[in-house]
């Protein structure tokens, strides 16, 4: 899932201080799981802003709300009229949610209430780790299920580099060397010989490159577009 992390209150305050009516809008899926931007954290941030406003003697109305997800319109549409009553929406969704809501809300600014950190797993309660970089071209079958794109500091495809030190990365003793893990894992799986092959220079075009990436499922889009057209012809408005 997407892991987010909280922004310092001063950074938030700088964003919101000139608004009169602020909604801290929580997202109850990924960023809630990592305790960054669910409804509870939205309420906490709202409380902090209110206190900060009181410190500055500013009259500011700050409320909070939450919906299941900010990345699908069906989730926030029912409350959009309410949301539009605010001067500012501080979304504690990931960046996806902030973008998405911003495009659909009309003339209310949507600001980011948290930092979107990475795609990660819940390693242990309260500990989240990045395991995928969303590069769009998965090679995990070649690397023992351990992603060098996300987990090697240098995204090496033919590691390890000379910086591996007792299984750790040269960057920090806190970071496991991904290639060390790959070698050990493939040793265990009996597939180490596959690592003798040089993986060629990658085609990074499936990664962050050339505008937003889209996945379009033709078998679904075909039907949906027909339906959308029908609604439009009937004078209905497309969201």
């Amino acid at each position: 899932m997407i892991i987010g992390s909280q922004k310092p209150i001063e950074e938030i305050w700088d964003m919101v201080k000139d608004f009169k009516k602020v909604l801290v809008f929580g997202c109850n899926t990924c960023v809630a799981v990592c305790h960054a931007g669910g409804e509870k954290e939205a309420e906490t941030i709202a409380s902090l802003i209110r206190m900060r406003a009181a410190q500055e003697g500013k009259a500011m109305e700050v409320n909070h709300m939450g919906v299941m997800r900010h990345c699908e319109p069906e989730y926030f549409d029912p409350v959009l009229d309410e949301v539009r009553k605010y001067d500012l929406v501080l979304s504690t969704a990931c960046g996806v949610g902030v973008n998405f809501l911003s495009e659909r809300i009309g003339n209310v600014p949507v600001y980011p209430g948290i930092n979107t950190s990475f795609y990660g797993a819940v390693e242990a309660p309260g500990r989240f780790v990045e395991l995928c970089a969303g590069c769009g071209n998965c090679i995990l079958h070649l690397t023992g299920g351990i992603c060098p794109v996300a987990r090697c500091s240098k995204t090496l495809m033919n590691g390890p580099c000379g910086g591996t030190n007792k299984g750790k990365c040269e960057v920090s003793q806190e970071i496991d060397c991904a290639w060390y893990l790959i070698v050990e894992r493939m040793k265990k799986l009996g597939t180490l010989d596959r690592l003798s092959e040089v993986l060629p220079a990658r085609n990074w075009s499936t990664s962050r490159d050339g505008g937003p990436r889209r996945v379009s499922l033709e078998h679904i889009r075909e039907y949906e577009e027909r339906e959308e057209k029908k609604v439009e012809q009937a004078g209905g408005k497309k969201q």
Binding site: N28, A32, H35, G38, E39, K40, E41, G66
Partner: peptide, 8 residues
């Protein structure tokens, strides 16, 4: 209850 991130 206070730990629930969704206030569910």
């Amino acid at each position: 209850s206070p730990e629930c991130p969704a206030q569910a």
